[in-house]
């Protein structure tokens, strides 16, 4: 589904190479996790895949179901089924959460040549999805992420994901800033979306999120490359011994 080949990326503004040849394939129905120390390029990878400004791809490719992601505008990637749950969800003052969701859902439907959801159908759908994430009516009315707690922001990301039903979900440190209960709630939201047609790329520092969202494959990223790939046991190894041993072994 998501195929990344030999991806090299530098910052647009300065001569700083961040990704130095990333190879990664996420199959439909699988959950891949990427772990790695700070500054290894994990977040850059998620931004480059989703099309944020400020990065220059110098070599390599990234495709979603065969379509060249790097040639597309961010909104085209979204309509093609790529979703990024942000590490720091953005606040948009004055724009109601519900209005934002409805505009996003209908923009994607329009881009795919589907009919827009009626107000009634949308409302029914959003209430149903919000309920399972313990998002109340008040949170749906408030401006997007404004004054939300850390846990509310992350739950809101998962609500957007549930409403947009993307093919490929990238979660960028969704566990950061969450207490144990909030993390469970978020993980349940993610697990409810797992199915054979959908791929997940879960970026995290800690094994604890992977206790709740069980990955099929775990990758370790360091200095702009995937340096080791294994099963869920690799995450446990990191938890117990840190990255030092693995990085020493690789070098």
């Amino acid at each position: 589904m998501l195929e990344i080949k030999n991806l090299h990326v530098k910052l647009e503004e300065e001569e700083k190479q961040i990704l130095k040849g990333v190879d990664l394939t996420v199959e439909a129905g699988k959950v891949h996790a990427i772990m790695g120390p700070n500054g290894s390029g994990k977040s850059t990878l998620s931004y480059v895949l989703s099309g944020r400004d400020g990065y220059e791809v110098t070599e390599g490719s990234a495709t979603l179901d065969g379509a060249d992601l790097l040639e597309m505008e961010p909104e085209e990637r979204a309509a093609a089924g790529l979703f990024l749950a942000f590490q720091y969800p953005v606040e948009i003052p004055g724009v109601g959460n519900m209005t934002f969701l409805r505009t996003a859902v209908n923009a994607q439907r329009k881009a795919r040549g589907e009919e827009e959801l009626s107000a009634a159908d949308f409302l029914k759908l959003v209430r149903e999805k919000a309920k399972s994430l313990k998002i109340d009516a008040d949170m749906l009315k408030r401006p997007v992420n404004v004054g939300f707690s850390g846990g509310e922001k992350k739950r809101n990301e998962i609500l957007q994901m549930a409403m947009l039903e993307p093919k490929m979900c990238i979660l960028d440190e969704t566990d950061s800033g969450l207490d144990v209960d909030a993390m469970k709630l978020v993980a349940e939201g993610v697990n409810a979306l797992r199915d054979e047609g959908r791929g997940f790329l879960v970026i995290t520092h800690y094994q604890r999120l992977l206790d709740h969202i069980k990955p099929d494959v775990v990758h370790i990223m360091a200095d702009g490359r995937i340096v080791k790939t294994g099963g869920p046991e690799l995450a446990l190894e990191v938890e117990n011994n840190g990255y030092t041993d693995i990085l020493a072994e690789v070098n």
Partner: peptide
């Protein structure tokens, strides 16, 4: 803010208007 809106599927003009 614009990138956030566009990642969710809105085109640039729609995002700015919102």
């Amino acid at each position: 803010q614009l990138f956030y809106c566009r990642q969710r599927g809105m085109d640039e003009e729609e995002a700015v208007a919102l």
